[in-house]
Amino acid sequence: MTKVLPKYRNSMIAIGLAMALTACEQEAQSGGAPGQEPRATAVESVIIETQPVEITDTLPGRTSAYRVAEVRPQVNGIIIDRLFTEGSKVEKGDVLYQIDPATYEATLDSAKAELASAQATLQRAKLQAERYRELVKNRAISEQDYEDADATYRAALASSMAAKAAVKSAQINLDYTEIKAPISGRIGKSFVTEGALVTASQTDYLATIQQIDPLYVDLSQPSNTVLKLRQRATSQGEMKVSGIKLTLDDGTEIDQPASLQFADVSVDESTGTVSLRALLPNKDNTLLPGLYVRAKVPVDNVDSAILVPQAAVSRDTTGRAHVKIVNSENKVEDRVVTTSRVVGTNWLVTDGLSEGDQVIVSGLQKIGDGSLVDPQQIDKQ
Rank of each mutant, 00 (worst) to 15 (best):
187 I>L: 07
187 I>F: 02
187 I>Q: 01
187 I>P: 02
188 G>E: 05
189 K>Q: 10
189 K>C: 00
190 S>V: 03
190 S>M: 01
190 S>P: 08
191 F>N: 14
191 F>L: 11
191 F>E: 06
191 F>C: 00
191 F>V: 01
192 V>N: 06
192 V>R: 02
193 T>E: 09
193 T>H: 04
193 T>D: 15
193 T>F: 05
193 T>M: 08
193 T>K: 11
194 E>T: 15
194 E>R: 11
195 G>E: 11
195 G>T: 03
195 G>P: 09
195 G>L: 03
195 G>D: 11
196 A>H: 10
196 A>R: 02
196 A>S: 13
198 V>D: 02
198 V>C: 04
198 V>W: 12
198 V>L: 03
199 T>Y: 14
201 S>M: 01
201 S>Q: 14
201 S>E: 15
201 S>V: 02
202 Q>P: 13
203 T>N: 13
203 T>H: 09
204 D>F: 04
204 D>Q: 15
204 D>N: 14
205 Y>Q: 13
205 Y>H: 15
205 Y>M: 05
206 L>C: 13
206 L>N: 11
206 L>Y: 06
207 A>W: 02
208 T>I: 14
209 I>C: 08
209 I>S: 03
209 I>D: 09
209 I>R: 07
210 Q>K: 15
210 Q>H: 11
210 Q>N: 13
210 Q>A: 12
210 Q>C: 04
210 Q>E: 15
211 Q>F: 00
211 Q>W: 00
211 Q>N: 15
211 Q>Y: 00
211 Q>T: 12
213 D>K: 05
213 D>S: 13
214 P>N: 03
215 L>P: 06
215 L>K: 12
216 Y>E: 01
216 Y>K: 08
216 Y>L: 00
217 V>L: 05
217 V>N: 05
217 V>K: 01
217 V>P: 06
218 D>H: 10
218 D>V: 15
218 D>S: 07
218 D>A: 08
219 L>Q: 08
219 L>I: 02
219 L>V: 03
219 L>H: 03
220 S>M: 09
220 S>Y: 11
220 S>V: 11
